[in-house]
Design a protein around this nucleic acid. Structure first.
Length: 1032
RNA sequence: GGGCGGUUAGCUCAGUUGGUUAGAGCGCCACGUUGACAUCGUGGAGGUCGGAGAUUCGAAUUCUCUACCGCCCA
């Protein structure tokens, strides 16, 4: 056994163990009527990139729960998979394409780009799965899914078809970035802002029937005059004074941090603002009052009445302080329009010319319309100042033409029923959310019942299964539907057609096809139907995850058995986007909730309190932590920080690749391409290295020393096990009688029972930090520091050896099981060794152990083993040990010296301490020469009174006395006592306290004061004696 | 602007129903290495619990206000 290394070689062990688990299919789950199912679906990580520490936490917690339940005898399925993450992934791939090959998506075409993204997916999925595996995640890898694979695609199609059939999918308007040249919507990241020279036109709108004293017109200013054709309101700030104050306050706070140079500039701005305020405030407040009073304006050129409204989008510090509102052609105005429930008038044709809504201006291009609008307003005398100004203008990356915000047709899912069903599920606690406070956000969000825009102008995703023809008249539409209804697919229930009456009076026909079917698709395309180019919002497929992964819409045995899943563990930023939608889709598709419980875990922040991300340079790769500290340390370290209130702050360091020194990350150094190590003075590179020179330097891993404690704990456990194994060569299993066991064994069994209960309850209630702490303290401070230390002399005693081995093996066995969900690798590695020397173990009756701790039975808290009084008694023993150690330390007595000790205690304590007397030698280097009610102080005595247990400890200092040190210790003790006595006296001197506090509290205080006074007297006596003695 | 959370030792965090001297790990100081472990052992120093007020005999703990930090929504 001596060849077992004294450090756990996690790298070697982990790969060996992973392979063994894999070969034994330890994490595979099957439909098994003999067991209860326990199911968790993984929040599928985006295939955008690699996992970070947040995923590390998320997956560690899931694995802890899953491993625990598996050991508890459930058929535990952890369903793994990844998410195609529509826009994020497409954007990443497109960016790379641009950087590396200078190609755009349009150069590759739809199929070309999608195939590139599949390549990317393959690469990153492999990497992600590798990360999960190395973390020890016990997913059922045979069941791996991807949100864009065939099984998920079938679920998406079936769901969409169902909603379409129920008329819950509809065509609606939404503001998008419109490229008038390509006549298509472009995504946000395809838009680049170009600064151009432009103008800021001021003009006025007349007020309809102003009251006396009110202005006859309102001035507004715009960079896009032609949009006034679509104006449906003019806004003024609801509290202009406050708005002015706020701007001024911001400027002033800027002033305090400004350099001298900037200062005069900012001061000028403040002065200008003040001047503006005194000039304009009364007028703006008057306008605000007019708005609240319902005053209307007449929109020139169009002769349309529009309201004056109060909205914070109007900025008193800018322009005229009033702003025209064109909801259909400006994102901010759109929001105002939603808030104020304004009409949204689209004045553009898809090609960028003015449509019929633009009246006389119909047919003009935007520049033409602009010119004419300005000229016509001028002719009406409504044109004021025209300022030259630089304007940020969004341009399409592709066509290089200006983007027009444009109210375009999009697909929506009607939410009112779906949202209500998901609210009900949480309100009546069919779905329980922990911590409970997250219910509110969930319910509030769903309560708005905003319809869900599900179409995305992307290529990567589930393409919307709708074909349409537009611009039909009523007869043509009816005819099309009639023809569609004759198709066999319609009769089979695989095809649905709806007629949509468009705003312009024309008809559109939409066809939805349930399954991918090229024959039907070609047939309807031949009829003139065109497939929608858009794809679905990525959350649409994620919303189906709990049932699509189990094979729905097929009625699989898995679905029957594993659904609804047991718990969902995720982070709070996707409660609405994902969790809520899974609930409503589960209810819609299956008629049952997707999971019984949801646990929301904290977020991982860096040392500066910022979220970790690759783009900030503070992202930590779990693999780097595993390489440095091991997978168990990563998991334990994360789990012990996972409380349910506090986000986790994790200071981050670079690890010098030359000398392994850890260098704290700062805001400054985390964005540098290379750094010099302050330890060895050598350069290393970071993720930002770009030049060949920098890239040739070795790269520093980004890690956190927060994992050191956990790594040390793994090592501690390893060494405790090593000790046990070293003393087991002659082990033979035996039945033990609990009642006959000595106190130390009873204590261990009782503690094991208590700890088992705490840990089990902790994990079942998602108290990961608490369970982890209980395990850490028990393993280190009780099992190692006391039980193993006590076992040493017992193992040396031939009469006691066998029994000690039996109990010790059992203790280690239980500890390994309890720790396994958190630290699977080291526990499995030890288990393997224990199985060699003690394959049969257990108290009271030994039994054969399974090959893997992973597949062993979770310990149960044994009521007969639990004994509160034994735990309390043992605590007395521990306290006495502590007292002796304190005295020794204060006297600087060398550890190898044995000191004589006298222990004054009650008879009942004597009963406990007497059998433990011999252990004071190994634990405190003490020989107990006197013990019991009559034990007295030594001639040269160092005393310590333990009032709470009514024990006095005396150490004989004859051989060791350091008078100065002892006097110092006693003086300190005395002043501490006096401080406490004073506090108590004050408390008891307070009549209110004595009169009003419960009697038992008062009595306790009195007794405690008496004790303290007694102690104080005795310490004074000791001091006196010592002084006299040293004076002699 | 609304909602939620946080603020406890140099750092990262615990603190159950209000009740003796507020805890842990890391870091720091002192001493210690012949057999489980220096990724260790023993002991020590260090905080009055963001601020103000209220309730109470008694508040880190309950309530109100406030400052700052973070997240979500708008």
């Amino acid at each position: 056994m001596n060849q077992i290394p004294d450090r756990f070689d996690h790298a070697n062990a982990a790969s060996r163990i992973l392979q063994a688990w894999d070969e034994a299919k330890c994490s595979h789950a099957e439909v098994n009527p003999d067991r209860k199912p326990f199911t968790v679906v993984i929040p599928p990580p985006n295939v955008t990139g690699a996992l970070h520490l947040g995923h590390g936490l998320n997956n560690t917690l899931q694995d802890i729960v899953v491993r625990t339940r598996r050991m508890q005898g459930y058929e535990a399925l952890w369903m793994p998979g990844t998410d195609h993450a529509g826009i994020a992934t497409q954007a990443v791939v497109e960016r790379r394409l641009k950087e590396q090959e200078n190609l755009s998506r349009h150069d590759l075409g739809r199929d070309g780009l999608v195939s590139r993204i599949w390549d990317w997916k393959a690469q990153y999925e492999t990497r992600i799965l590798g990360q999960l595996k190395r973390m020890g995640c016990s997913c059922d890898w045979d069941r791996l899914r991807f949100t864009l694979d065939d099984v998920c695609a079938a679920a998406v199609r079936a769901t969409f078809y169902d909603l379409f059939s129920k008329r819950m999918i509809y065509r609606g308007k939404r503001l998008v970035n419109w490229d008038t040249f390509l006549q298509t919507a472009v995504s946000n990241d395809e838009v680049e802002n170009v600064t151009k020279k432009g103008h800021f036109w001021h003009f006025t709108y007349p007020v309809i029937n102003p009251n006396a004293g009110e202005p006859a017109q309102v001035e507004i200013a715009t960079t896009r005059p032609e949009t006034m054709l679509g104006d449906t309101a003019v806004a003024v700030h609801p509290d202009p004074a406050k708005a002015f104050d706020k701007v001024e306050q911001e400027l002033r706070s800027k002033l305090t941090e400004a350099t001298d140079k900037e200062r005069s500039e900012i001061q000028n701005q403040i002065d200008a603002l003040d001047a503006r305020r005194s000039e304009m405030l009364p007028q703006l407040e008057q306008l605000r009052d007019m708005a609240l009073d319902g005053r209307k304006l007449m929109l020139p050129l169009m002769d349309r009445e529009i309201p004056l409204i109060a909205d914070t989008w109007a900025k008193p510090e800018l322009g005229s302080g009033c702003v025209k509102i064109t909801p259909a052609h400006d994102p901010n105005d759109y929001e105002v329009g939603l808030r104020a429930d304004l009409p949204m008038i689209n004045i553009l044709n898809p090609d960028g010319t003015i449509n019929a809504e633009g009246g006389l201006y119909q047919g003009l291009t935007i520049p033409q319309a602009r010119k004419k609008v300005v000229a016509d307003l001028d002719a009406l005398g409504r044109l004021g100042e025209v300022e030259d100004r630089e304007i940020e203008l969004p341009h399409s990356d592709r066509s290089k033409t200006p983007i027009e915000p444009y109210l375009a047709d999009q697909w929506f899912v009607a939410m009112s029923e779906l949202a209500q069903s998901a609210m009900d599920a949480v309100q009546d606690e069919r779905v329980k959310i922990f911590p409970e406070r997250y219910r509110k956000g969930y319910l509030d969000w769903l309560g708005e019942k905003r319809d869900w825009p599900v179409s995305r102008q992307l290529w990567w995703g589930h393409r919307i299964p709708i074909w349409s023809t537009n611009g039909l008249n009523e007869a043509a539409a009816d005819d099309a539907v009639a023809r569609l209804s004759m198709m066999p697919a319609h009769a089979a229930g695989d095809l649905q057609a709806h007629i949509d009456n468009r705003e312009d009076g024309s008809r559109s026909v939409y066809v939805c096809i349930r399954q991918e079917d090229t024959v039907v698709e070609e047939e309807i395309e031949a009829m003139g139907f065109v497939r929608d180019p858009d794809v679905l919002d990525t959350w649409f497929s994620s919303a189906l995850w709990p049932h699509s992964t189990l094979g729905w819409p097929e009625k699989t045995a898995e679905l029957e058995y594993f659904y609804p899943t047991s718990t969902l563990i995720t982070s709070r930023d996707i409660i609405t986007l994902w969790v809520a939608r899974m609930v409503l889709m589960g209810l819609n598709n299956i008629g049952d909730i997707p999971f019984n419980e949801v646990f929301i875990h904290p977020k991982i922040l860096d040392g500066l309190g910022e979220t970790m991300s690759k783009s900030k340079g503070n992202g930590v790769d779990p693999i780097d932590v595993i390489d440095k500290f091991g997978p168990d340390a990563l998991r334990f370290g994360l789990a012990r920080l996972a409380t349910d209130t506090q986000d986790v702050r994790m200071p981050v360091q670079y690890e010098c690749p030359h000398c392994e020194k850890l260098i704290d990350q700062t805001k400054k150094n985390r964005s540098l391409p290379k750094l010099a190590c302050p330890g060895c003075n050598q350069d290393f590179s970071t993720q930002w290295a770009e030049t060949e020179e920098d890239k040739s330097l070795p790269k520093a891993a980004v890690v956190s020393e927060r994992f050191e404690t956990a790594r040390n704990f793994v090592n501690k456990l390893w060494n405790a096990a090593r000790f046990v194994l070293m003393n087991m060569e002659d082990y033979s299993p035996q039945t033990v009688t609990i009642e006959d066991l000595p106190l130390e064994d009873r204590w261990l069994l009782s503690r094991l029972s208590t700890v088992t209960q705490q840990v089990t309850e902790g994990i079942e209630h998602y108290k990961f930090a608490e369970s982890t702490r209980v395990l850490y303290n028990f393993a280190w401070d009780e099992f190692c520091s006391f039980y193993v230390e006590i076992a040493k002399p017992r193992l040396a005693d031939p009469d006691k050896r066998a029994l000690t081995q039996a109990v010790m093996a059992h203790g280690l066995d239980t500890l390994l099981k309890l720790l396994h969900p958190v630290m699977p690798f080291v526990t499995e590695a030890i288990w393997e060794c224990v199985n060699q020397v003690a394959p049969e173990r257990g108290v009271p009756n030994p039994a054969a152990s399974p090959k893997f701790v992973m597949k062993s039975a979770w310990p149960t808290a044994v009521a007969e083993h639990h004994d509160e009084s034994i735990e309390r008694q043992f605590a007395e023993f521990q306290e006495v040990v502590g007292a002796i150690r304190k005295i020794r330390a204060s006297q600087n007595i060398p550890p190898r010296e044995t000191v004589p000790v006298a222990i004054r205690c009650s008879d009942s304590s004597l009963q406990l301490l007497q059998p433990m007397v011999s252990y004071f030698a190994s634990l405190a280097g003490a020989e107990v020469v006197l013990i019991g009610p009559t034990a007295t102080a030594f001639e040269t005595d160092a005393p310590l009174a333990l009032t709470s247990i009514d024990v006095d400890v005396h150490v004989d200092l004859e051989k060791f006395i350091d008078v100065e040190a002892e006097l110092a210790r006693l003086d300190k003790l005395k002043s501490q006592l006096e401080k406490q006595i004073k506090g108590k006296q004050q408390k008891l001197g307070n009549e209110n306290f004595v009169a009003r506090a419960p009697a038992d509290v008062v009595d306790k205080e009195r007794a405690s004061l008496a004790d303290l006074e007694k102690q104080s007297e005795s310490v004074e006596g000791d001091i006196e004696r010592l002084r006299n003695k040293s004076a002699q």
